[in-house]
């Protein structure tokens, strides 16, 4: 309460002297770019803008809960704010956002944040009334890490390719590869020991976890992104006085999403440079030609069809959603996932 007294004194006589504690669950380590690019700056921003009325406690390293259960945890009030990975909530009302994780839906977080907000507001409404959803964003685009050279799609035939979910599975099968399921903890060793030949992974993460050591052939393709949605516990939000609610809604929440977007954009460039540097002697860092890009995009279609089927099963109109998604991309001038 010391903070509140010193900073609000004299400024707002009606101010409630109560300090609201806001617990943030950062399921990444404290050394991750989420921590220094997003959560820490947001903490400062919140505490400054609310004149210390809201005190932010950041808990790093999944100590309040894992990334796989953010939806359940936020609803249950295990913590007040965290980052939700849409794909881990495939079977929840967040499902519509997972369209953004399909092959070549987006090239990066800037695109994702431009499109997903409108898309989500249109299709992801039901069942989400009991939490506060901030503007969506996404990870960087995944690149292909391979232990052997990959000159063209033909080189991927019968390669053991790591897959982490349904849509990756469909994409890999379309490419002619053999999908192998390996946990994300097992990727490094899997590549090193030849259990898998390739893995799609975020270049930022792949650089940090040194996947280029066992897999020095890296193809820059931004095959997919993972949509991310910062979320807030509703009870916490409603416990705030109205002016603070408004502040969060109009300023602080969008700022958090923007911080994540910026973080990914700036880290990505750095990581790509680092990766290129690191494999100079032992491997190859390649960008796709226009023709190859088209070719890869074509193979992504299978994953889209699977998603549409899933959407129908969940009671949405999958085809309509996909069409609308394409329309939004086109309107905003972004490339289409496939033709």
């Amino acid at each position: 309460t010391l903070v509140a007294c010193s900073s609000t004194a004299g400024k707002n006589e009606n101010a409630n002297n109560k300090v609201y504690e806001l617990d943030v669950n950062n399921w990444q380590p404290s050394t991750h770019h989420y921590a220094y690019n997003a959560w820490e700056p947001w903490k400062e921003l919140v505490e400054e803008k609310t004149d210390g009325q809201v005190k932010v406690n950041i808990y790093h390293g999944s100590s309040l809960g894992k990334s796989s259960s953010v939806y359940q945890d936020i609803k249950g009030g295990l913590y007040d704010v965290s980052l939700l990975v849409a794909n881990y909530s495939y079977d929840t009302p967040f499902f519509p956002y997972t369209i953004g994780s399909l092959p070549f839906a987006f090239e990066g977080p800037a695109e994702a944040s431009a499109i997903l907000k409108e898309f989500g507001e249109k299709y992801a409404k039901e069942g989400l009334e009991d939490l506060i959803i901030m503007p969506p964003t996404s990870t960087d685009g995944y690149d292909l890490f391979s232990t052997k050279p990959v000159e063209s799609i033909a080189d991927l035939k019968n390669r053991k390719m790591r897959m982490s979910g349904k849509s990756e599975n469909a994409f890999i099968e379309a490419l002619g590869g053999t999908p192998v399921s390996i946990t994300s903890e097992g990727i490094y060793e899997g590549l090193e020991k030849g259990m898998i030949d390739t893995a799609f992974y975020t270049p930022i993460g792949g650089e940090a976890l040194k996947y280029y050591e066992p897999a020095p052939y890296i193809t820059k393709m931004a095959v997919l992104v993972n949509p991310l949605i910062p979320v807030m516990n509703k009870e916490f939000f409603e416990s705030l006085p109205e002016d603070l609610q408004k502040l969060f809604e109009e300023e602080l929440n969008p700022a958090l999403s923007q911080l994540f977007t910026n973080s990914y954009e700036s880290e990505l460039e750095e990581s790509h440079n680092q990766l290129e540097d690191n494999v100079k002697k032992r491997g190859k860092f390649t960008s796709l030609s226009v023709a190859d890009t088209e070719d890869y995009r074509k193979h992504g279609k299978a994953a889209w069809e699977l998603w549409i089927k899933d959407a129908d099963q969940k009671g949405y109109n999958g085809q309509e959603m996909a069409d609308e998604f394409f329309r939004m991309l086109e309107k905003a001038g972004y490339p289409l996932p496939y033709k």
Binding site: Q72, G76, T183
Partner: peptide, 23 residues
């Protein structure tokens, strides 16, 4: 500190995470 609902959520996700575990 947080109420029954939070306890329930903690029991739900922690029990599942540490039994539905490959590692």
């Amino acid at each position: 500190l947080k109420g029954w609902n939070t306890l329930a959520a903690a029991v739900e996700t922690i029990t599942w995470d540490h039994s539905f575990s490959y590692t």
